[in-house]
Design a protein around this nucleic acid. Structure first.
Lengths: 142, 142
DNA sequence: CCTCTAAATGATAATAATTCCTATTTAGAT
DNA sequence: ATCTAAATAGGAATTATTATCATTTAGAGG
């Protein structure tokens, strides 16, 4: 059983088909997805699973810190498994996501936290800009 | 005339009462605000100014890079004058905000952007955790 | 200062994202 | 196998944001 399902069970939540499928899709795709993306993918196997259920479970996963929620260029929120502690650069035009292979947060932050008696629990970065393709297409200097 | 209004005029856009007021509110408040926050504040002086106008102008300001748009915990987008370029640590319990006096983004990021031909336009950080007071109250280890 | 026109606005309808509601189903404890 | 709280499906409701369009206005040019 995946570490995610284990955590869900260990907190007394039930392991249901929608939960299995949501996690399966996120593990397979690896990139940040909208709730709709996930629902669409799931419906290929189980068309009766509703979008509301996907949202409900994504919120649960975010609360449990198993999933990170953030916004890219578009209006809809993006969700990604948090186990890898990843950061990205997101194209504001096409939504392309470039994963970073390191955490771009300066270690200095820990000194500041200590100084203010602040306990850092999580952090997330959003680096917005234009990918090469969109720069060209839209004639933005570069 | 403020640097913002100057930029607006220099691009051929008109300087209108809504635009003056939106910028005035953002300059005064200094913290990230939702479109509704701004509209509510403006309506104290000019109740006829509509929310749609606030949204329209915020989008224009974002396009012109005078304002940064991002999402905090809530559903609505937050807007802040981009020259402030500030970062915060936010308490997940009481919402207390600690301003950082430096940008915690590693310079290394610029190399990666170059490598991917990605043009960074803005970035946003969110550092979540517990402030001293809330740690104590809720008995979280620290 | 008038005049004129493209740009901007206000009011409201429309759309998109997300949450709520409720009757029904089900996971998993006993 | 039974039972019950938890979870679900489906659709309605809510919230955030954008689009529409008739009316107003900023500011350029005379």
């Amino acid at each position: 059983m995946s570490v995610f399902l284990e955590k869900i069970a260990s907190r007394g939540y039930k392991i249901t088909p929608p939960r299995r499928l949501i996690l399966k899709v996120m593990e397979e795709k690896k990139v940040p997805l909208t709730a709709e993306d996930i629902a669409r993918e799931i419906k290929k196997e189980r068309p009766e699973i509703s979008l509301a259920t996907v949202y409900r479970n994504l919120n649960l996963l975010v609360e449990m810190d198993l999933v990170n929620k953030f916004h890219g260029g578009g209006e809809a929120a993006l969700y990604q498994l948090s186990w890898e502690h990843e950061h990205y650069m997101i194209c504001l035009i096409c939504g392309k996501v470039i994963n970073l292979t390191f955490c771009p947060l300066k270690e200095e932050i820990n000194d500041v936290a200590l100084q203010y008696d602040f306990m850092i629990k999580s952090h997330y970065f959003q680096i917005n800009g234009y990918c090469g393709a969109c720069k060209q297409k839209s004639g933005i200097g570069g």
